[in-house]
Amino acid sequence: MNDLNLLTRRVLLAGAALSSVAATVATSDSAMAQEAAPKIGPAPNLETLARHKVDLVAPPFVHAHDQVAKGPPRVVAFKLVIEEKRLVIDEAGTTVQAMTFNGSVPGPMLVVHQDDFVELTLVNPDTNTMAHNIDFHAATGALGGASLTFISPGEQVVLRFKATRSGVFVYHCAPGGAMTPWHVVSGMNGAIMVLPRAGLDDGHGKALAYDRVYYVGEQEFDIPRDEKGAFIHYDSPGEGYSDMLKVMRGLIPTHVVFNGAVGALTGPNAMKASVGETVLIIHSQANRDTRPHLIGGHADYAWETGKFRNPPEVDLETWFIRGGSAGAALYTFLQPGHYDYVNHNLIEAVELGAAAHFEVDGVWRDDLMTLVSPPGAIS
């Protein structure tokens, strides 16, 4: 018994000593963390800030905005209405019961400046069948806002967050569990661009500007097939959930498209530009990696990770966008004509639909390219 008491005392003393060491380490770590933590001032009185209401437009277009901020930070108000709708996604008439922000895949691009406050009204009409929310990769805290914005049909919510970091960022629905990837690959994603207050630069102090901006949202769809191999049509999102989940788990999408459908940005829907114009291309992929490539052109400047505080890379032939992120590329067109803009996984571009077009007008320059001898018989 005495031996047991002695052992108990030693264990307790050892525990006390370890607790003392742990407390000292914790105190030291806490002090270091406080020293390293950014100094955060008091929250501003938002009542004193200017307010600006934005009318959003459908991709590939982007609402009017200033490239350089005019004045101090302000509250920028947006409204996204969730719409569950059937979309035709290829020439064969294949459909998906899509879940969307404002009816488009991807959802609209939102543009603010760093240190502005984003104020979003998210609406889930009672005509919908599912609960939804929104996760902003640009936001800080509460799962990007997802844990604060969960709304059932017939409800709305208003979220406000400070845009503390510049760059282009994905937003998407994130209800939790398997519902999150299902909602995302059913179309429920978009992007927000947070411009530096002084505008873009090359990382060495040279200002960069653009004449046009286009938003390309790459989207994979996982459409189930029947026993004969034909794509199945469903009457509501929930009806196809279990079948779609099986296809999703195979990790081989049936479609990989730009802006919601095969051909959505080709032919008469091609993006327009002129020789001498500088175009900013925002490219997002909320779920899979992708490799944008402009055939016949380049990225003069490319923010592959989409974050404008990082210096852009230059003269890229193909740039890489990580799944769950957005990137940006800036190019000044030098020659007129037809340009293909593709995911340079060419199987996904040619076979699954990840392709778009630019149509560029202007005068051809022989000094950049010329046909010296036309095709003919071998002499």
Rank of each mutant, 00 (worst) to 15 (best):
V314H: 10
Y234W: 09
G362L: 04
V118Q: 12
N287T: 14
D366Q: 05
M99D: 05
I281Q: 00
V194M: 10
A178K: 13
E317C: 08
T149Q: 00
A273F: 01
I82E: 10
D115Y: 06
F221W: 15
V62R: 03
L334C: 08
I378M: 07
P292S: 05
L46D: 00
L56P: 05
P59K: 07
F78Y: 15
D135G: 03
V279H: 07
L4E: 15
V216D: 07
N133S: 02
P125I: 01
V170W: 03
E155F: 07
S104T: 15
Y241M: 13
A23S: 12
A354D: 15
P196R: 12
P44C: 05
A31H: 10
M244V: 13
A354R: 04
I82R: 12
A77I: 14
V363M: 00
D243W: 04
A354T: 11
A58M: 09
T95L: 00
A302K: 05
A264V: 03
T332I: 04
R288G: 01
L12E: 12
N128H: 04
G267Q: 08
M99R: 12
T8H: 03
Y331G: 02
M244C: 07
I192T: 11
A299V: 09
E313H: 12
A36E: 06
W303M: 05
A98K: 09
P42Y: 02
D315N: 15
V54Y: 01
A92E: 14
G41Q: 11
D340K: 13
L200N: 02
S19Y: 08
E220Q: 12
A58E: 14
P72Y: 04
P336E: 07
A207C: 06
H298E: 14
L208Q: 11
H204M: 08
G276N: 06
M188Y: 10
E313W: 00
G229T: 08
S28W: 15
L265C: 10
P181D: 11
A209K: 14
D367I: 02
R9E: 07
P106T: 06
V168F: 01
T94Y: 03
N133D: 12
V185S: 12
T140D: 05
H65D: 07
H132K: 08
F101R: 02
A326Q: 08
V350R: 14
P44G: 11
P268Y: 02
P196L: 00
A163M: 06
L251S: 08
M109I: 03
A328T: 05
E83S: 09
